[in-house]
Amino acid sequence: MRRQMTEMLKGTLEGIVLALLTRRPAYGYEITAELRERGFTDIAEGTVYALLVRIEQKGLVDVEKVPSEKGPPRKVFTLNTRGTAELDEFWTTWGFISDRIEELRKRGH
């Protein structure tokens, strides 16, 4: 199951992170910790940081550098209007795909 989970997460992790950012702005470690609290225990911090770079480059988040007590300033990510639209599209797509998969599951193997 672990391999399948990894492959499925590759296609959905961006939407999951955007959904987490609807609750409050956060920096990379906070996002990774929340993912792990929600059961995504195998996600590496590097994976989350690479995704954050991508969503920043796509213009889906606003970024503010906030001083840190330890080391360099932290980049705090806030979902912006473009990110909200992307998340809405993600949920529409997710609903379509999950409905079709559920139909297949209910019909039997």
Rank of each mutant, 00 (worst) to 15 (best):
M1P: 08
R2A: 14
R3L: 13
R3G: 07
R3H: 13
Q4T: 14
Q4A: 14
M5Q: 11
T6I: 15
E7R: 15
M8G: 09
T12E: 11
T12N: 10
E14A: 05
E14K: 07
A19N: 10
L20H: 02
T22G: 01
R23E: 12
P25K: 03
P25T: 04
A26Y: 08
A26M: 15
Y27N: 10
I31M: 03
A33L: 08
E37D: 13
R38Q: 14
R38F: 11
G39F: 05
F40Y: 13
F40C: 06
T41Q: 12
D42L: 08
D42A: 09
I43F: 01
I43K: 04
A44Q: 08
E45K: 12
L51M: 01
V53S: 09
R54D: 12
Q57Y: 07
Q57W: 07
K58C: 08
G59I: 06
D62V: 05
D62P: 03
E64V: 15
K65W: 15
V66H: 03
P67C: 04
K70D: 13
K70G: 08
P73A: 02
P73T: 01
V76I: 02
V76K: 06
T78H: 09
L79D: 03
R82Q: 14
R82T: 10
G83M: 00
T84W: 07
T92K: 15
T93V: 15
G95W: 04
G95Y: 01
S98M: 15
D99Q: 13
R100F: 05
R100L: 08
E102F: 08
L104H: 07
L104Y: 09
R105M: 09
